[in-house]
Design a protein around this nucleic acid. Structure first.
Lengths: 202, 202
DNA sequence: TTACTTTTGCTAACACTGTTAAGTCAGGTA
DNA sequence: TACCTGACTTAACAGTGTTAGCAAAAGTAA
């Protein structure tokens, strides 16, 4: 009983030790240079121990992606709650998402599988649908207010557009950082999102 | 004279042999699994000869990125030439860009440095500014037609927005391919780009 | 033609990756 | 006490990018 319990506890402790040590390496050197051996070295265990807790290296990176989703969902929820009007909510979500991406660059990249084969993503990431619902709700509200014929199916379309704009801007800025000013980038975001919202309402 | 010329010719032949053989591997197995040894094997030379022609593996991948730019610039130029009105030109460019991205997935990914450390990109890729000018021209035209106060500076903003929408849509579809229908994706593109153009004109 | 130099290409290694088979040894169980 | 299960290790396999050092061929000058 108690022994088995302790063993489970120890196993979980080891697992989270691997994750937090791994994350330390990621923040220090970038996720590209995370390696199983580096983790093993840091936790002072041999390499195969890590494979007792994770199927492979990708599983560890996917775990970080999940953590990223949990983080951003929290921040988006807060940002949304600060406003009543759906248009204002949408703008707040966009701003919060933007902030998150650049304050949590490593997380952001792992969330959208910049490293991981894409097919496994959807199964491992139920968080993506939470994110989706969060963004979709205010869009549906706006469309319904404007009494559009097919609000539901349009919302799906508009959701994709909304966060394509966001993700596009962020991707570009991440690939080629210092050739434009910080300020221009924020203006592009504002321009795009305000245009999008305006279009939604008309 | 003639001997030196032949040597240069042979050297260039070897270089393009490396590139075309490398590209064969990329199209067969994806750029992630391109390796120097695989190229060496395929061209039936030992590994170090490749380093006589390219500083490292990244240099080869960057070369493919360049080729991608040349390709897309050609196709966008054609698409643009088929229309007279700047709004129609912009739409045609967007459609052509979209087509290119999915018909040349490997090229597209290498163009935007999904593998390569970003800092070196700008130096190695003057093609990016050609691309930029190509897209910017019709935007400037529209803005000037509408007699906007600061057409020039706005165009820069709008250019970023335009292709952020494009790149965002494409990135998303590339990361998670089969969860939405082909048709929806095209509708999202049309929706986003038409909305963008409408905004530009008002 | 001979002697010298340059170029070309190779072998073999270094220092890393991810992953796993096989064995050791301690803790817990009957 | 004898056994067994698991935790943990060593050592290896099969890859990766990269480079030092050497042999042979090719071209040049006497």
């Amino acid at each position: 009983m108690s022994i088995a319990e302790r063993r489970i506890r120890e196993k979980e402790a080891m697992r989270s030790n691997i994750l937090s040590t791994g994350w330390q390496i990621v923040t220090d050197e970038g996720w590209q240079s995370l390696s199983i051996r580096k983790i093993a070295d840091a936790i002072q265990y041999s390499v195969p121990v890590i494979y007792d807790h994770f199927a492979n290296k990708d599983a560890i990176l996917i775990e970080f992606g999940k953590q990223g989703f949990e983080l951003v969902i929290g921040q988006l929820t807060e940002a949304k709650a600060r406003h009543a009007e759906p248009a204002a909510q949408l703008k707040a979500i966009a701003d919060a998402y933007w902030d998150f991406a650049f304050k949590n660059k490593e997380h952001y990249q792992l969330m959208w599988g910049m490293s991981i084969p894409c097919c496994e993503m959807d199964k491992c990431m139920p968080e993506r649908s939470i994110f989706r619902n969060l963004v979709m709700a205010p869009i549906v509200e706006i469309l319904e207010k404007e009494a559009h014929a097919d609000a539901e199916s349009n919302a799906c379309l508009k959701y994709h557009t909304f966060w394509s704009i966001l993700h596009g801007l962020i991707s570009i800025k991440m690939v080629a950082p210092p050739d434009d000013t910080e300020e221009l980038n924020k203006r592009v975001l504002d321009d795009a999102i305000m245009g999008f919202i305006k279009n939604l309402e008309s």
